[in-house]
Computed example of a mutant assay.
Amino acid sequence: MTFDRLSRRNLLLGAAGLTAAGALSACGRTEATVDEAGRVRLRLAAGGPVTAAHGGFYQAIATGTYERRGLNVEILTGAAGADIPALLAASAVELAVGVDSFAPMRLIADRAPVKAVAAFLQKDPVVLMARPDQPLEALSALRDRTILMSPADQAGFWNWLQTRFELTADQARPGTPEDNLKAFRDDPKAVLVGRLTAGDPTLIAREAGFTPRVLIPADDGYPSYSSLVLAPNAFARDNAKALRDFIAASVEGWRDYVHGDGSKADTLIRRANPDLNQRLLNAVRESLRTEAVVDGGDAALYGLGTMTAERWQAFAEQTEDAYPSAPDWREAFTVQYLPGRG
């Protein structure tokens, strides 16, 4: 079980003659291959740079949990903004990690037959950070303030934030991490978007010289899931046992990563992303525990990885203007492959 970086060739395959969504729709039977030991091979696209948001998957690799269920799982890493539909359409990967609930909703809007089959972060780990002397008790305090973010967040999280709190388009300031950090230092009223799972509050404290105020939008109504497992419908249909085994092993991995010894997973994470050090990952895992990011909410009632129709409907209603055509949120997910379901 290994991890590797997605090649440019794999990224381009999905565009050969068909759109990614069209290629996925045209898929026939898609039975997974097996290795020389008879284990089912599954490639999982990380969907961007590796962080603690992938911790449970790496834990299941490091501890042999996938192997014990007859799986050979490989995590393929890549840059932010990886073209998940193209990767799935090209059969460069069997599964992918979605950073938020926008991922499957946009796939459905594009008529790509892909569903979220599990959500291992019950709270989206997106955070808002401000200087310690600036108010940030609630999202309503954001009006008339510059909000620094990545281009990916402008295309995703910002859609919800702007609509929900009647913010203006000119408040959004997308930029590189370096530009955003400089602007955050220079503008005392600026608010910076980051991720708990990337250790951003700790990194900002180190780089900016002060401990920022931190607000978690998930605690103020943001209904997105994160670390979603995305599977093409045809693959799920033709490999139901392997998919159920993968999710069950991932449940074990996430439980052990958050509440057990995650050091073996962290070693693999740091190998895939040398910008993360062990002290930072320790702080992130503590945040995952104290904020109940993995096992809080519906997961406390129905088990890790769970999703509910109520959450998906709420997300769809609150982000309806983010898509060129309204997707049917019911087509964005299924719980039939979760442990104890189906």
Rank of each mutant, 00 (worst) to 15 (best):
S140M: 03
P113C: 06
L128K: 09
A53D: 14
T77C: 12
V97L: 14
C27P: 03
E137A: 14
V127Q: 03
T51S: 15
V99F: 09
Y66N: 02
R9K: 14
L76H: 08
V114Q: 04
T65P: 04
E31F: 05
A23C: 05
K123V: 00
A20P: 15
G55H: 05
A130K: 03
I84L: 13
F57I: 14
A138M: 04
M129F: 08
I61G: 06
N72K: 11
A32T: 13
G78E: 03
G14K: 03
V127A: 09
V127M: 07
A52T: 08
A21Y: 04
A32H: 12
K115D: 01
G55N: 08
E137H: 12
T146I: 05
Q59F: 05
I84M: 08
M129K: 06
L87P: 11
P104H: 03
V40S: 14
T33G: 15
S91F: 06
G64W: 04
A90K: 08
A21G: 13
V126G: 11
M105K: 00
Y66T: 00
A118H: 00
L76I: 09
L24Q: 12
A52K: 10
A130R: 03
A52M: 07
A60D: 04
G55I: 04
G14P: 11
G38W: 09
D124A: 11
V126Q: 05
T51D: 13
A37Q: 15
V126S: 12
S140H: 07
R8N: 10
T33S: 15
A20I: 12
L42R: 09
A46E: 01
A80V: 02
S25K: 15
L88H: 10
D144M: 06
A109R: 11
T33N: 13
T19R: 14
A62D: 01
Y58E: 04
R69N: 12
L88C: 08
P125F: 02
A86K: 06
L142E: 03
G47D: 13
I75R: 06
S91H: 14
S25R: 15
Y66A: 04
A138T: 14
L42Q: 09
E137T: 14
E137C: 07
M149C: 11
L44A: 10
A15L: 09
T146R: 15
A116P: 05
T65I: 12
E31M: 12
R43G: 13
H54I: 05
A80K: 09
Q59H: 10
Y58V: 07
L12K: 13
D83F: 06
C27D: 11
R41T: 13
Q122A: 02
C27A: 14
A80G: 10
A112Q: 03
A118C: 00
Q59A: 01
A45S: 15
T30G: 08
G64C: 02
V99G: 09
R145I: 06
V73A: 08
V97N: 12
E94Q: 14
P125M: 01
